[in-house]
């Protein structure tokens, strides 16, 4: 960061000392001279230098590091949004159906793991959710589970993804 610290350094003269500002000339004609001059009351007792200024630069360094972190966060956030909103794949995973017939004997269909496999055939009628008399097979009602590893015990076909 170039600003304040460096701009101060620019004007600095290495090793330069400055006399106290005692050089004044009085011009009121009476001829009083420097002897009566009070030393310049520059600051109240107990003043500890300019407020906020951190000579060692430590605070600045820490904040600078934090600044980089924040900058990364902001950039990531903006980029994520742009990437997400730019669109993606609009297609649907293939859902095997035989049509209106339900009673067709079928091998257990299973959810493709995202691969539209054309090999799946008609599925066994899954049990109804709330009805005691199930369909022809007693399968566990497992439709709709997201991580669809639902081995169908009923028909003994491959029921694993």
């Amino acid at each position: 960061m170039r600003t304040p610290v460096e701009t101060w350094r620019e004007g600095a003269h290495a090793g330069h000392t400055h006399e106290p500002n005692e050089v004044t000339i009085q011009l009121d004609g009476i001829g009083r001279q420097l002897s009566e001059l009070l030393p310049e009351p520059t600051a109240p007792d107990g003043s500890d230098g300019p407020v906020f200024v951190d000579e060692s630069g430590r605070r600045g360094k820490t904040l600078r590091r934090l600044g980089w972190v924040l900058a990364a966060v902001f950039v990531c956030y903006a980029v994520t949004l742009v990437v997400a909103v730019m669109g993606g794949n609009s297609s649907a995973p293939f859902l095997p159906l035989t049509g209106q017939e339900q009673q067709e004997p079928a091998t257990t269909g299973n959810d493709g793991g995202g691969t539209p496999a054309g090999a799946a055939t008609a599925s066994v009628p899954a049990a109804d959710a709330g009805e005691p008399d199930a369909g022809t097979d007693s399968t566990a009602p497992d439709a709709g589970l997201p991580a669809g590893d639902s081995p169908d015990p009923a028909q003994g076909q491959e029921g694993v993804n």
Partner: peptide, 26 residues
């Protein structure tokens, strides 16, 4: 009557497919 979701009522496999990998994280 029984109240089922669509694919259960039709006797089809679930309409849901799990998402993994980059798509999931996106």
């Amino acid at each position: 009557y029984s109240f089922a979701n669509l694919t259960d009522a039709l006797g089809a496999p679930s309409a849901h497919t799990p998402v993994t990998g980059f798509d999931l994280w996106k």
